[in-house]
Nucleic acid binder design. Structure first.
Lengths: 163, 163, 163, 163
DNA sequence: TTTT
DNA sequence: TTTT
């Protein structure tokens, strides 16, 4: 049940290969970044402008497995989820907030394009899953290396909990 | 034009009266927070659980004026916009990121409920607009005083720019 | 699973009390009509124009029970579902098509407004459910009596079938 | 302005080449059909089931031109519009109703896939537009040739009118 | 900070 | 048939 609606719909391209890890209870969690872009003509200069927005997307459960196996850097994807902001501690002890798009039960994921538009006939990733301890900074953040948020601690993840 | 889709749909309650300010070019910008909540039965304890998510929403242009005039603390509202993350500098010189839901051309706002469900026959705010120089820290930040993001510097706001 | 996205989001007012019936397997099906309206200034005449669109909405399962109990004529409601067109035979033997918004698993329903905005403190409908054998012609058909579509034959409705 | 929300989001494949015609005032109108499909495992038989839903989509204005030039049979597309049901007279003088997804100002269209996934390097259609008098029955309807709805008479189409 |  |  819900009082209210909290819905995000994205169509964009995946910024890097998905990162999948597994919770103690066996549930999969997959992280990706999705880029969406707008372009428009600047009224002043008359030049074509473009802006790219990066979205952190976190899949849970069955969709986490599918996303981890089939999405690749460059994949075009439709995603439907909900906004969630979590708090984490920076190395300086200060609170930081990161907003993510959560895709679980009630969400949706659709690969777009009739084939792998970015990688030809490369097979999907083998379905095995060594939990990566050191998650690299996301592609969007690599310019000047701001401190990345840690992977969320979803150890208490449970089918009861709707996230 | 856009390559990609970046869409957010929220139905929730406004956490406080709207904050409206005016850009040098006369365009209005209105900030509100919207709460959406989920509830579910915890499988372990069997107890009813609830989680509230808060969303920063920024209106531009005509919708900023309407939101500023008609929305009030407690109002139920439908909002359609897009995600945007902006960077700002904390007092410690570190980069911070804040994600907001931008509602402008291409977005939508609908007040819900047939009457003012929160304030009876209280009239809408008088339509005048002293630009508030010192924007108070947003309510969400007051519990334990994390550093709030500054109001965005949208001085260059222009109809050309799609935000 | 799905290849493709088929999503409808409506916020509007219910045109009449819900009609609930029960399938042989005990599942509920509830029909309502929802009105959405647009208004605009006609450029020619300068007059205010308005257009109302009516949507047939069919709820299944748990949401059918909730809709049948709590929605009333005039209720404001948020609905999320998918489009489905079904064929039926007119009395003249000709094929007719009716498009409906199906709300089931994967859909959502939210009553809007903080109280019963239409009926004060009228209690929700008693939760009992005599299957109505003779479903009256829908209200929309009464003006000049076009032939209404029959209630869909969902006897084969089953949790397996995603509608 | 609008009281209410009337929104449709589709991701699917185009059933045939677009049909573009021009109104007396020079505005373009383009018709396509979009297929979306669901699949699921039948609980009884255990077999994989699939159902395809066809949607009539009508573009107006600038998007009508873009759709007419770039979409082709088989194209995968994202469409955002609103539901509209129009009445027309069958040859037997009876009223018929057809529900369409209208995409105009306030709507959106996105071609999906990085290239023409269906036609290789075929160039976009030449931008000329002989109004086709005899619109063929839509692909979805060709099985047993039901009477198709006529193209809507949108001669009064005007920028004032939000359809 | 909202709301039920 | 709703609602503002």
């Amino acid at each position: 049940m819900a009082r209210g609606v909290n819905k995000v719909i994205l169509v964009g391209n995946v910024g890097g290969d998905p990162e999948t890890r597994y919770l103690p209870n066996g549930n999969a969690v997959t992280n990706i970044s999705i880029a969406t872009s707008d372009s428009w003509n600047d009224k002043q200069t008359g030049q074509r402008q473009e802006r790219t927005e990066w979205h952190r997307v976190v899949f849970f459960g069955k969709l986490a497995e599918i996303a981890g196996e089939y999405l690749r850097k460059g994949s075009q994807v439709y995603v439907e989820g909900r906004l969630q902001t979590r708090k984490w501690q920076g190395q300086d002890g200060q609170d930081r907030y990161t907003t993510e798009v959560i895709v679980d039960i009630g969400g949706q994921m659709q690969m777009l394009g009739s084939r792998n538009d970015d990688g030809g006939n490369r097979p999907p990733a083998a379905r095995q899953s060594p939990p990566r301890e050191n998650r690299p900074a996301p592609a969007a953040a690599q310019r000047q290396a701001p401190e990345p948020p840690p992977a969320a601690d979803y150890d208490s993840f449970d089918d009861d909990i709707p996230f």
